[in-house]
Design a protein around this nucleic acid. Structure first.
Length: 462
DNA sequence: GCATGATCATGC
DNA sequence: GCATGATCATGC
């Protein structure tokens, strides 16, 4: 393999990287390592056999003289032909003890990652040997100017949590684009000291969220090709508004301009159909100045809008999530289950409405929220594992004949049995079914957050 | 009044 | 035709 490039020149490094495009990892490896079965990550192969240097994980960038850090990551094609990042991009380990002394602009994160060389290969389910994956993009990348303020605010938020002695409570859902993801051995095998508290915390790394990397991929790598729906619109049209405000504060202030207004009047003002069941979510986007159905920042940060209607100060209903597939739950491990991923990687925008005694609904406020990891790893985990067990052992059903109808009582986890979440039907009607592991059909179900739990989470809203 | 199972309305 | 968000209705 040709090693002709100038290690001190980013452009030369990028040019050399571009020679990888349309090659597989096997094409890069020397003959004796072809189809190599052992461990070793794809990035290390590129470093060693294409760029000809040995891996290092120091504080300095991989190409020290050029200040370029090499990252190899993968993307995938979705069922609807669009492309998404397959993973978050892990940047560098968070050293809890040192990082609290740093300033963002001169932080170890920025020092090491200010200029990235991103190499993207296409993940393909059909290809069994990962060395046969094809490299599709190789390009220098810097944090876009429009995103720097949000990334900085994320960084500050993570640092402040460590300063508050809560490194063990860090979660990817805390922040918008830059996350603190777990890194290293799973479970509690790899615990680290933190500076302001005696409790040991999981090792974590700064990373750019998967949702954010999907945005980067689509806008900076696949650009020009019309391979995705570009129908989302930015809320922040002028970066000036973030100068003295975080993104989240900006959103909250904007929504609170309409505090106390009647929903029906707002729908009229913003020209929204009042019959739509998702009118409240549509309304919020309009208030934030988004004409279409999607806000770009929310997509990048993996923020989901959830509306909550209060009556006498308490939520009227529990909060639903998308229906799950029985077989998928039965065959997943908790650690990589969909529900755990949704809860730990999403951030939620709760938009809160009040219904008065006359049935008139008014906008109150909004708040950003993500589920604390202890709730995920204790209560929700218990509920999920029990759901899995019941599905595998067979759902018990008791047919109850009532005056006007017949219902089928089941033994899936109830809201009275768990502090945080339960299982409930979620389909068009009871005949809307999904197949169980034993082949029987059963009414589609989903996970719901208990309304009492939601109440606990929002009662101290500002 | 609340929990639970059932169902509705919209939009793609 | 289905996914999604939202809500209804019965019975304890």
């Amino acid at each position: 393999m040709s090693l002709e490039y100038d290690k001190s020149n980013p452009i030369s490094i990028e040019e050399h990287a571009k020679r990888l495009i349309n090659m597989s990892f096997n094409d890069v490896l020397p003959d004796k390592f072809k189809n190599y079965k052992g461990k070793g990550n794809l990035g290390q192969f590129i470093e060693k056999y294409h760029f000809g240097y040995d891996l290092n994980s120091d504080k300095e960038a991989d190409f020290k003289e050029a200040g370029v850090e090499l990252k190899v990551s993968c993307f995938k094609q979705n069922k609807n032909k669009t492309y998404s990042a397959k993973e978050r991009l892990v940047l560098s380990i968070i050293n809890y003890m040192d990082v609290i002394e740093e300033q963002f602009e001169t932080s170890s994160l920025i020092e090491k990652n200010k200029l990235l060389l991103l190499i993207y290969y296409l993940y393909d389910n059909e290809i069994k040997n990962k060395l046969d994956y094809i490299i599709k993009f190789a390009q220098l990348f810097e944090f876009p100017k429009e995103d720097i303020k949000i990334i900085k605010d994320d960084w500050v938020k993570i640092i402040n949590k460590i300063k508050d002695g809560k490194a063990h409570e860090l979660s990817e859902g805390d922040t918008l684009y830059l996350g603190a993801c777990t890194k290293g051995a799973g479970g509690n095998k790899d615990l680290r000291k933190q500076p302001c508290c005696d409790i040991k915390a999981k090792q974590r790394a700064f990373s750019l969220k998967q949702s954010y990397m999907t945005h980067i991929l689509r806008n900076y790598f696949i650009k020009g090709k019309k391979t995705y729906n570009n129908d989302s619109e930015s809320i922040i049209k002028n970066l000036e508004v973030l100068k003295n405000n975080t993104f989240e504060d900006y959103i909250k202030n904007k929504v609170e301009e309409y505090k106390g207004k009647e929903v029906l009047k707002l729908c009229e003002e913003f020209d929204i159909s009042t019959r739509a069941k998702n009118k409240n979510a549509n309304l919020i986007l309009k208030i934030l100045g988004v004409k279409g159905k999607k806000a770009k920042e929310f997509e990048k940060a993996n923020i989901e809008i959830k509306t909550i209607k209060l009556k006498n100060g308490k939520p009227k209903e529990s909060m639903s999530f998308r229906t799950f597939k029985f077989k998928e739950v039965a065959n997943s491990k908790w650690e990589d289950s969909d529900f755990r991923n949704v809860l730990s990687e999403s951030r939620f925008l709760f938009v809160i409405f009040n219904e008065d005694d006359n049935g008139v609904e008014r906008l109150e406020t909004c708040m950003f929220w993500n589920m604390p990891i202890e709730d995920i790893e204790n209560d929700v985990k218990e509920m999920w594992l029990r759901t899995k067990k019941i599905i595998k052992e067979g759902i018990q059903v008791e047919v109850v004949q009532r005056k006007k109808d017949t219902i089928r009582r089941n033994n899936l986890p109830k809201s009275t049995e768990n502090r945080v979440a339960h299982v409930r039907p979620h389909g068009r009607d009871s005949k809307d079914t999904d197949v169980l592991p034993n082949g029987d059909e059963f009414t589609k179900q989903s996970f719901w957050l208990n309304k009492n739990y939601i109440y606990e989470q929002i009662k101290n809203r500002g």
